[in-house]
Design a protein around this nucleic acid. Structure first.
Lengths: 250, 250
DNA sequence: CGGTGGTTTGACCACGTTCAAGAGAAGTGG
DNA sequence: CCACTTCTCTTGAACGTGGTCAAACCACCG
């Protein structure tokens, strides 16, 4: 019915818990005291492999868990009544996603792996119980939700007040930041999504994104081949993204 | 510097706590057991009057509290580097706002009263302590944040995939729903914001909003005089807002 | 009253979409 | 390994929605 979304991939359990997980760095418990982290350890029991396009959860499905990206990348999408997709979020290693379902107990969007990814599942009921005992965890959850809300607000501002070029440049710089936060190169990286998805996320037609990227390349600001992107002139990009110095136009 | 935003209105304390508050219905504690509600009572100590345009909190100010609208209406706005405003949210009686600051400890947007309003302030540190003891309150907070995130996502979808007319109609229907939830008329109400603000919220120019409303009026779907709005043909509006039945066009 | 903030209407134009066609990349099976 | 399909990306041309600018109107308030 629904496209070929119902894969049955062998879900390899990578490790039974956090303390023995080789990917523990950059995970949710970061920032928690060691003792509390060990308590939390029991929660994230099911790191699993998802292949490209495989769904992690589906829109309208009952909400039981949230998830953490250990490796790879994940997008969340909302599908409206006409079947159009709208990309709402991009999640990279260390990011938490899936809390959209807390509101009314069912997920309001779907989550899909963009490439082969390792994903940890955290049972929300367990998480809630631990939150009550761990003030730092409680605070952390609220902060993460607040961060996501602020990210959404940023997107809203971009969508309504910015040109295609500004949006694209801001997207590039946002990715750059996020890779840098992960101790990866902020000047040369691979776009996690297809350009179709990226355009959708930015509220643009693919053609527009393609043209804008071409223009940026012609001006010598970036180098782009396929999904491989290199930032050549970060200062110029920042000037485009945040046009507050109008005085040196000409 | 900043417009005439630094009012010093006499802040009339309406009642010292929730149990003695005449407006307690429709407040945050709703859904909590009586006993827990009484515990929470101590938190919301400062219901205060705000006049039209008065700021409740300012962008970049340190985050200490969140707020509940008891009466009136509030908008949240983000002001970018160029000084442009962007309306992010509209809050009606019973709504909680101000949690945008949890993320990094300072508010990411400002909140302004749209008309004379009663606002309760809740100290966040106190709220957090009570959350730890009251699982239902903990859940409630996460739900409220999730609801706001979902609202933002809805706006994102509207902004990128809908025509001006669809957005306007959806806005009208959303208001209708919210008034109905508050046991008020869902077919005849007053727009809480100016049309300038409403257009901004919808990512449109004021002129466009004005034209679209005029068109809807000419087609006999609504009646509008100033900010007073009456829905005449709800079914037709719903058909516009959610164009999934393309087959009976003509 | 004049003044200010909000709203309406018209004319014009630009940005980004849509449609169309083709090239390139990637995945699948013989 | 190549031929095949399918998905992704690029480029061009034409169109249209909604923005911008300008002017006038209106309501409310001091």
């Amino acid at each position: 019915m629904d496209g070929a979304q119902t894969y049955q991939v062998s879900v390899n359990t990578v490790s039974e818990n956090c303390t023995s997980c080789s990917l523990a760095a950059g995970c949710l418990p970061k920032g928690l005291p060691w003792q509390q982290w060990r308590q939390l350890d029991a929660l994230a029991r099911h790191p699993a492999v998802f292949v490209r396009r495989q769904r992690i959860y589906s829109q309208n499905a009952p909400f039981y868990s949230c998830y953490i990206v250990k490796s790879g990348a994940v997008k969340t999408v909302y599908i409206n009544a006409q079947g159009q997709e709208r990309v709402l979020g991009l999640y990279l290693p260390g990011d938490l996603f899936g809390l959209d379902g807390v509101g009314d107990g069912s997920h309001t969007c779907s989550a899909q792996a963009l490439e082969r990814s390792l994903i940890c599942r955290i049972n929300f009921a367990d998480l809630e119980q631990h939150m009550a005992r761990m003030p730092k965890l409680q605070r952390l959850l609220l902060q993460l939700m607040s961060d996501q809300l602020n990210a959404a607000h940023g997107l809203i501002c971009s969508l309504s007040q910015s040109t295609a070029e500004e949006r694209v440049v801001r997207f590039i710089l946002e990715l750059s930041d996020r890779y840098r936060q992960r101790k990866l190169s902020g000047t040369e990286f691979r776009l996690a999504m297809t350009k179709t998805d990226a355009a959708n996320y930015l509220g643009l037609a693919v053609e527009t994104l393609s043209r804008v990227l071409g223009r940026l390349r012609n001006r010598g600001l970036i180098r782009i081949q396929g999904r491989q992107l290199q930032i050549l002139n970060e200062a110029a990009l920042k000037a485009i993204a945040d046009p507050s110095h109008i005085f040196l136009d000409s």
